[in-house]
Design a protein around this nucleic acid. Structure first.
Lengths: 195, 195
DNA sequence: AGTGTAAAGTTTACATCGCATAGATTGGAT
DNA sequence: ATCCAATCTATGCGATGTAAACTTTACACT
């Protein structure tokens, strides 16, 4: 895996790693195939053997981001209380926390550049967090904590709230606000309104 | 204003118009200075006399978008009931409606490409909708409809909800959902939770 | 061992883009 | 009538995305 010969060993992973590095310091605009190849110490055309085009690279980075997001969410939920409402609020807080901790990566995930045609593995990675959220809302609903609200609707609203708060935070539209607290209290208020 | 001579007359407006057209059919990626110049029937370098660089053009388009958003909001609020809560819900619905009607434009407004350094007129145009929202929330709070909640917090949460719902709708993350209804009911639930 | 094949990297080439600089054209102030 | 500043054009440079064609390596098979 570490033979510095002609064949890299695991260039795809190395390219993704380099892409994350470039992303953190230069934003999406810095994510050029050539720059990634340069950072990985490889020729400019090598990435094309692993990613069909620039959009595919960006989609792969985004998919990796969703995977990390989901992993962190699972870890956070493991330490959360049992009450579904409280777990949902903790999830919202954790989601916004991820956004704040990985601004460039999250911006990429929500980037217009991916909105065009769908990418397979990206869709799969993005589906995991959504499914886990839906399960939590269903549990709350089953426990009689959401009145007769439509679970899918509540899930979408919660997600939108967290997504919006995070994006506003990293775009500087919420200066001085404790966005983590806002995510938690907002989710609680929204859920309370449905009780 | 329509003299087809050497001097265009109002090239800046024509360029912005062409940019909107390109945006609708090709997304942000299609917004190159050369393409805009081509669409306006002018030399490739002409736009540089009206926009410092590509980012400035994008910022100007975004500012125009915020202006339109604010204008539509004012029009929608004129026909809304007097109750602050109902007006806030109507505002949320209208916001999401704008996003759905102008997907490419809204994506541009929330684009990472603007997140770097701030642009003056963009900030000014973006501030108008925020101020109008803050005023509405303050009115609701003054009418005793929000308990002792922090108005700034509630405003941010409402905005985040609408922003998130709109973005999810145009990104295909809410297939088959009536996002307009979700915006309205979500805003109502959130506000109800604070009562 | 020897060989053939597919994957992984490289090189070369080309169109386009953003941007800088310098020159041409025009309308209006003096 | 003259000058000037704003506006548009022409040309050039470096970087990027993409498409070939070529080279090197790893591996299965005989």
């Amino acid at each position: 895996m570490s033979a510095p010969g002609y064949h890299h060993g695991d260039l795809r992973a190395a390219l993704l790693d380099a892409a994350l590095g470039l992303l953190e310091q230069g934003g999406v605009a810095a994510l050029s195939l050539r720059a990634v190849a340069r950072a990985a110490g490889v020729s400019a055309m090598a990435p094309y053997h692993h990613f069909q085009d620039r959009a595919a690279l960006i989609a792969a980075v985004a998919a990796a981001g969703y995977d990390r997001l989901h992993a962190e969410k699972l870890a956070a939920l493991a330490a959360a209380p049992d009450d579904p409402i409280a777990r949902l609020a903790a999830g919202a807080r954790n989601y916004v926390g991820f956004v704040i901790d990985n601004p460039a990566l999250y911006r990429l995930m929500a980037s217009p550049e991916l909105a065009g045609r769908p990418h397979e593995d990206l869709a799969k990675s993005a589906a995991a967090p959504a499914a886990s959220l839906a399960a939590l809302v269903a549990a709350a609903r089953a426990a009689g904590q959401l009145g007769n609200a439509d679970p899918a609707a509540v899930a979408l609203q919660l997600w939108a709230l967290a997504h919006g708060l995070g994006q506003m935070a990293i775009d500087g539209h919420a200066p001085g606000a404790d966005v983590l607290a806002l995510a938690e209290s907002g989710a609680l208020a929204l859920l309370k309104g449905y009780r």
